[in-house]
Design a protein around this nucleic acid. Structure first.
Lengths: 115, 115
DNA sequence: TGAATATATAAGTATATACTTATATACTTA
DNA sequence: TAAGTATATAAGTATATACTTATATATTCA
């Protein structure tokens, strides 16, 4: 009867987190490719701690995961999460954000971490 | 290229509103059937103004609409909204809430408005 | 090892949110 | 028309949120 993909409590929590434009775009970007903290700082033009705090919230509820690569920490979508299908159908309906990273490449602002 | 169903700003706003458990369940109920304010008060066991305030927020961004029927005001899902498909795919993945109104019927607490 | 770079955490602050109680408004019915 | 019922709005308050700056931690590389 219930071909439900996510619990109500969790859905509310996820929606609340995605209810911030910065985090929503972060998730849309991460659904496409991994990204490091400094890139998000460039994209959103906001302080580095602010970016870290957003990422921490997404990580705390298991939506993304971090992986250190040398000096940098890359974040990626946790596609193994049981809630990923829920998130994916949501993100699928949003405008593409791949231009954000493309733009960094053109600027040469993506140089540091992603050569 | 972008078979997008909703703008990013609007999606964030909608997610923020659905990021509250009360409103999320309200929307799930309304996706199934219309409901009046006093029923929500019964269901959520919270003050009547609190319910009105939640409904106002949902109405202000066009997700639901109200219709007075005598003494009562019924709220319904605005299925004509261009954002309804977005909301629907989201709600479709949530556990059924139809038991909430069924329970009121069994209690006899649905008597007032819905005879 | 020391300087530079990337990230996280701590602490402070302004604003937003969700509730409450009190009150106003609208409708119904005796 | 007066009393009762349903809903909305106003005002107050406690808590949550998103940002900032300052600082700590981890890594790289000369």
């Amino acid at each position: 009867m219930q071909d439900t993909s996510v619990e109500t409590d969790r859905a509310a929590l996820i929606c609340k987190l995605l209810g911030d434009k910065t985090r929503l775009i972060m998730m849309k970007i991460l659904d496409d490719q991994d990204c490091c903290v400094c890139e998000f700082v460039e994209i959103f033009q906001v302080s580095q701690p602010s970016i870290s705090q957003h990422l921490r919230k997404l990580r705390d509820i298991g939506l993304v995961q971090e992986e250190r690569k040398g000096q940098w920490i890359f974040y990626s979508m946790n596609k193994n999460s049981s809630e990923y299908p829920f998130i994916q159908t949501l993100l699928d309906q949003l405008p593409d954000q791949s231009y954000q990273l493309k733009q960094l490449e053109e600027n040469g602002t993506r140089i540091n971490c992603c050569k």
